[in-house]
């Protein structure tokens, strides 16, 4: 009996030692803890952008030099406001509206892609055109009506954050059954979901159209990129297509998915772009964070046009047209009026 107990104790000791060994091997972890240190967060931001941002070479930005310039501004005696301001200014060196820092109290965004240019959109004037329009989408960002005695359809799509269902698009195109031309107004469309912009673009072609390329980072080096992968616009196959003339109105506030929409539909034979160069924003953005919990968004994957050219700084219109102050005085939108003239002439 005594020998049996002794034997059991030896066996239990062996099991315990094996368990301990296994736990030690698998349990070694180094935790990254919450850290408010301005220096630590400054370095973390610089490194995050250094390893993930996709336009260093295209924009000819020396990120090491940026570090040298801004690093002396931050020490551990700096406060959180100094840190936020310094990081925002550092990010602005990249001239990219897709780089955003969100702290607990503020949001940074580079505005240079539109702030230094005329808006070419007067909301008071647009309201007169939208009077009596139908609305769709959860946030009423999509409005539509007919102009020119029902001969021309008009859609204002203010944000591609606003989803639109295929059934809603069918309803819109039903209401344009007697129209001979269509105006898609994406001025001030600051972007959103590429799925939404593609869904609308797919209505304007009956063929699969090669419309661009996408690349992604394959490593942390500034030039570590994959081969360009071709992007295609697939036609909507089970409902209304619009193959008659389309004019897309653009301005500098047309950004990101809005910019991508203009780049894609601009190559279609029945589509003409009119207005100002778009704002750009062709880097597909991803999100990460800093040790202090601030959110950081950055451009990660460049989307090129069909000629493998960057559209990060915008897409030029086929027909440049600016808002005429004299028209504004008369509550007329120069871009819409020009589009109506062109579409009426084409009928």
């Amino acid at each position: 009996m005594g020998q049996r107990i002794l034997s059991q104790m030896k066996n239990m000791k062996l099991i315990f030692q094996l368990c301990l060994w296994a736990a030690i091997i698998s349990g070694c972890t180094v935790d990254d803890e919450y850290n408010e240190s301005p220096r630590r967060n400054f370095d973390a931001f610089w490194q995050l952008i250094d390893e993930n941002y996709c336009f260093f070479e295209y924009k000819n930005v020396d990120w090491n030099a940026v570090y040298e310039e801004y690093s002396p501004l931050i020490s551990d005696s700096s406060n959180q406001y100094d840190l936020f301001r310094t990081l925002a200014n550092m990010a602005d060196e990249l001239q990219d509206g897709h780089i955003n820092i969100t702290s607990f109290y503020a949001f940074s965004a580079y505005e240079g892609w539109h702030s230094e240019y005329p808006s070419n959109l007067n909301w008071n004037v647009i309201q007169t055109y939208l009077e009596g329009s139908q609305r769709t989408g959860d946030y009423d960002e999509i409005r539509y009506k007919t102009l020119s005695d029902g001969k021309i359809g008009y859609i204002y799509y203010g944000s591609f954050h606003e989803s639109i269902l295929e059934t809603e698009l069918n309803k819109i195109f039903d209401s344009f059954a007697n129209c001979n031309g269509l105006i898609i107004d994406v001025r001030n469309n600051g972007g959103g979901s590429l799925t939404n912009s593609d869904r609308l673009a797919a209505r304007f072609t009956d063929k699969r159209v090669h419309c661009g390329y996408i690349l992604h980072k394959t490593g942390k080096g500034h030039n570590d990129f994959s081969e360009p992968y071709p992007l295609y616009l697939e036609p909507y196959s089970i409902g209304h297509l619009w193959l008659k003339p389309v004019i897309v109105l653009t301005n500098r506030r047309c950004y990101s998915a809005g910019n991508n929409f203009v780049s894609k539909v601009g190559i279609l034979p029945n589509v003409t772009t009119l207005g100002d160069t778009t704002g750009g924003g062709s880097g597909f953005p991803l999100t990460s964070e800093l040790p202090n919990g601030w959110r950081v968004r950055f451009s990660s994957s460049p989307i090129l046009d069909v000629n493998k050219q960057q559209t990060e700084f915008g897409v030029a219109p086929n027909i440049p047209v600016a808002l005429d102050p004299a028209d504004e005085e008369r509550h007329l939108d120069t871009l819409i009026e020009t589009a109506i003239q062109i579409l009426s002439g084409a009928q």
């Binding site: 992604h216 992968y229 992007l231 994957s301």
Partner: peptide
């Protein structure tokens, strides 16, 4: 997934290399 590949590229556009 590759380092910077988005799910949009992989699953919307079909680049699964």
């Amino acid at each position: 997934p590759p380092y910077g590949a988005s799910y949009y590229e992989m699953f919307n556009e079909g680049n699964l290399s």
